[in-house]
Design a protein around this nucleic acid. Structure first.
Lengths: 128, 128
DNA sequence: CCGTATCCAGAGGGATACTG
DNA sequence: CAGTATCCCTCTGGATACGG
């Protein structure tokens, strides 16, 4: 399938998709859910290295609102909450796979041309 | 091809790819360059609806540093600068295509479940 | 365990004016 | 045309503490 020839206008399907997937963590969260299927909150937090609980819940809420992720809570003590991809979310798999495939293919190139994108976290900066 | 079973750790190929493609405009810029091949700065600015010259040049610099985009300047008056994708950049096409395909497939769903993500620009907020 | 609330530094990013 | 420079606001997103 060839790329559409229309202009990269706002509200075209391409840009709308980017809106849904924007943010620092959405791809990683979806990747993790694709790998493991249903996951508890804590499992996701452990699996997506570097994310904080605060950001995880925010991103999950957004994904849920867009119909990508399904949330199911059980009235147990302590609470149990399970997240999984909806059918719509599962259909994102080709995108995740394409990104991963490119990463594997170009790992050497990326590492080589890597600029100092490394930025200090606020906390790290304060300590310094 | 199945997704890799490794944890979504920092510095895995998947996360590194996200680092390269992070930011609000990179996917759209690459999409445009895939469609049109070599483009002048002004053409890109027109094609990627909503981007400002400031952000465009910033994103292009980063993409160039990562070896995704090639920049060629001609010593003409007025100046002519052409941007194109490197071979490495062209290899991102499957990702762009996957995103676009998903957008077309799920356009109805997205539009329907759209939350008020609309946010005022600083200028719009000042005027209000 | 699963969140929420609050605080806050700084990166992202728009507007505008200016240069070669 | 192809950028730079400056200003400044907003939102992201980390740290921390707390509630059900």
């Amino acid at each position: 399938m060839a790329l559409s020839q229309e202009k990269i206008i706002l509200n075209c399907p391409f840009r709308q998709t980017l809106d849904v997937l924007e943010g620092k963590w959405k791809f990683a969260i979806i990747h993790s859910l694709l790998l493991h299927g249903t996951m508890r909150f804590k499992a996701l937090e452990r699996d997506v290295e570097g994310i904080t609980a605060r950001m995880l819940i925010k991103e999950l809420k957004l994904l849920e609102a867009h119909g990508i992720v399904h949330r199911r809570a059980y009235a147990t003590v302590p609470p149990t909450v399970e997240y999984s991809l909806t059918e719509c979310g599962q259909s994102l798999e080709p995108i995740i796979q394409a990104i991963q495939a490119w990463g594997i293919q170009n790992q050497a190139v990326i590492t080589q041309s890597k600029i100092s994108t490394a930025r200090k976290t606020p906390a790290a900066a304060r300590k310094a």
